[in-house]
Computed example of a mutant assay.
Amino acid sequence: MTQTITITHEEIIHEIKLSCKMPEIIEQIITRKAIANAAKEAGIEVTNEALQRTADALRLISKLETAEDTWAWLEKFSLTLDDFEQIAYTNFISAQLANHLFADKVERCFFEDQLNYAGAALYEVVLDDEDLAIELFYAIKEDEISFHDVARQYIEDKELRRKGGYKGIVHRKDLKPEISAAVFAAKPPQLLKPIVTSKGVHLIFVEELIQPNLDDKLRATILSDMFSEWLKQQIEQFAVLEQFEVI
């Protein structure tokens, strides 16, 4: 027999506290309020057409192809249509605010910090045993085994193992300093000597070094990075004026 359980708003808040997620939720509330306040000060306006385009994009990202899909998604997350519109509204003003604050600063940021946007196409296997990593390094150098075979034998993650340890295009700023120094000093294609970090012993093959180019993708990345840093500063400075009490 199916049993019905009643869950109150107070219990939901209490569960958030018990799961130690209250700081995360408060930070999200502060973020939303900081964006709304800054957008209002900047005079950013939202038209019905713009809101509809943003809502359509949100449906596309969430793979909500039909009205039934949308209603099921809303029900799953206990959202109303007004809530969905609020999400679309916040997404829209966030994008507009990011452009308002930083669009004209992207090129300067790129040229001042373009070394950090240099990329490397690399393959990586992380091991626990340094002696084993050294042994495999020399075995690959002597063509006794291929890097792909090493990846297939020692990588636990299924998808990464299937790709032979290929990490894609990785930027300097996304790598640990000890790894980025070795990677960007390489002469590709080159297998690097094992590098020890807190995560383990890294066996890395550098396929190609890629000089940064300020294309649309990188421009969007820099804009997002600058906006994220701005939000971080707002969270640190924002005063939480509203308080609530769970009865």
Rank of each mutant, 00 (worst) to 15 (best):
residue 113 D to K: 08
residue 14 H to T: 05
residue 38 A to V: 12
residue 97 L to M: 13
residue 113 D to E: 10
residue 13 I to Y: 07
residue 120 A to V: 12
residue 53 R to Y: 13
residue 67 A to Q: 10
residue 126 V to Q: 00
residue 88 A to M: 09
residue 108 R to C: 13
residue 10 E to H: 05
residue 48 N to R: 15
residue 132 L to A: 11
residue 50 A to D: 14
residue 86 Q to E: 15
residue 35 I to Y: 00
residue 93 I to M: 11
residue 117 Y to V: 13
residue 22 M to Y: 01
residue 70 T to A: 07
residue 122 L to I: 13
residue 94 S to G: 01
residue 84 F to E: 03
residue 75 E to T: 04
residue 95 A to G: 08
residue 9 H to W: 04
residue 65 E to P: 02
residue 119 G to H: 07
residue 36 A to K: 15
residue 113 D to V: 04
residue 5 I to H: 00
residue 82 D to V: 12
residue 11 E to G: 01
residue 91 N to F: 05
residue 69 D to C: 00
residue 46 V to S: 10
residue 107 E to D: 11
residue 47 T to I: 10
residue 64 L to Y: 00
residue 2 T to Q: 08
residue 133 A to E: 01
residue 92 F to V: 13
residue 125 V to A: 05
residue 40 K to S: 12
residue 65 E to D: 12
residue 20 C to Q: 14
residue 31 T to Y: 05
residue 101 L to E: 02
residue 38 A to E: 14
residue 129 D to F: 06
residue 91 N to S: 08
residue 51 L to V: 06
residue 73 W to L: 02
residue 132 L to R: 09
residue 6 T to Q: 06
residue 58 L to P: 02
residue 48 N to F: 10
residue 33 K to C: 07
residue 18 L to R: 09
residue 132 L to N: 06
residue 104 D to N: 15
residue 125 V to Q: 00
residue 119 G to Y: 10
residue 98 A to Y: 07
residue 134 I to R: 09
residue 118 A to Y: 09
residue 69 D to Y: 03
residue 116 N to T: 12
residue 128 D to F: 01
residue 24 E to L: 08
residue 131 D to R: 14
residue 17 K to D: 04
residue 106 V to H: 00
residue 131 D to G: 09
residue 29 I to W: 02
residue 18 L to G: 05
residue 87 I to N: 06
residue 85 E to L: 14
residue 131 D to E: 12
residue 81 L to R: 09
residue 24 E to F: 08
residue 30 I to Q: 03
residue 33 K to F: 12
residue 136 L to Y: 03
residue 104 D to F: 09
residue 110 F to G: 07
residue 93 I to Y: 12
residue 129 D to N: 04
residue 15 E to D: 05
residue 125 V to M: 01
residue 128 D to C: 02
residue 75 E to H: 02
residue 53 R to Q: 11
residue 75 E to D: 06
residue 73 W to Y: 14
residue 84 F to V: 07
residue 95 A to Y: 03
residue 48 N to D: 15
residue 94 S to E: 04
